[in-house]
Design a protein around this nucleic acid. Sequence first.
DNA 1: GTCAACATGTAATAGGTTACATGATTAC
DNA 2: GTAATCATGTAACCTATTACATGTTGAC
Lengths: 169, 169
Amino acid sequence: MPKKRILPYVLLGLINNKGKLSGYQISQEFKNEVGEFWHASHSQIYPELARMKDDGWVKDEDDGKSTYYLITDNGQQVLRSWLEEPLSKTGELFSLKLYFIKDKSDSLLKSLIRQELEIKLDKLTHLKKRLKTVFFSDKQIEQNYGHYLILTRAIERETNHVKWLRTNI
Amino acid sequence: MPKKRILPYVLLGLINNKGKLSGYQISQEFKNEVGEFWHASHSQIYPELARMKDDGWVKDEDDGKSTYYLITDNGQQVLRSWLEEPLSKTGELFSLKLYFIKDKSDSLLKSLIRQELEIKLDKLTHLKKRLKTVFFSDKQIEQNYGHYLILTRAIERETNHVKWLRTNI
DNA sequence: GTCAACATGTAATAGGTTACATGATTAC
DNA sequence: GTAATCATGTAACCTATTACATGTTGAC
């Protein structure tokens, strides 16, 4: 299967978050928090918006200065079903999807956190196993100190993340 | 300027860490910790190794079953000067470079941690400012709850990271 | 008036993935 | 013997970046 494209959903999510956005404004949005999880240059954004309009995901509204894009009912459904797709272990889409959830009481919020928790608990188990098997002696630590640091740091980081997920479930 | 290629340095770093590796073994390595920071498929690895051999960064050693690659003195220098390039704010190469430092007493270790600390302190300041400006009222939080969560989580995460960097300096 | 920022678009290129191919070895 | 894994390589395709291009608006 071809690799799943994320960009159109990101644009859809951004437009949905803000109500309406121009291509230029979207490119500026990537300088903010969402830029931590996804990025796109204007040369990608404009053609993508045109495609999305063709597909009926968005409609445009021109004020003579900028072309703004608004999400359609169809687009809402498309965004929603993308958000509802289960998180894959490799995808790293948790934060991105979270960013697109506006309402605190949206049931998807808890669902995403639960999914992420399960994935991260597995990962934590795996990392701890790796630490034991790879660094079974002080000699291993000394000879691959950088690797040792990032592995122990990863365990700390994931432990903190799991703790946060648990308090927000 | 064209975007800086990372892949050859990653292959060089992996070969340097392990002594010698075949193309196949390198592709397997990406299933381990280093895969968190970089990935390459075998169709990228084999041609890249051939180029690196042409450039004199590595030499090969065939046992009839696999072709193993070993780093040359030239390759050592190339790897070292890449590791010594200052970290860029956007690059996210800290963990990757750390992974390639074998010796605990290598002065580069402290240097990398110091650089990362500076970058992350700036980022933390920026995130805290964003929190104040974007979420100045409860209404903003309620209407963009996902965004609020990832922003507050990012502040927590970076705070922890800074703490870790400080204890490892 | 000119420099930065706003605003949109296309073309060339690089980087990376999936698919296509092939053959050897090992475990069952 | 046959399925999984080892092992390497190329071709086609897609994505995304940089460069090229152009015009407007607002600040100083």
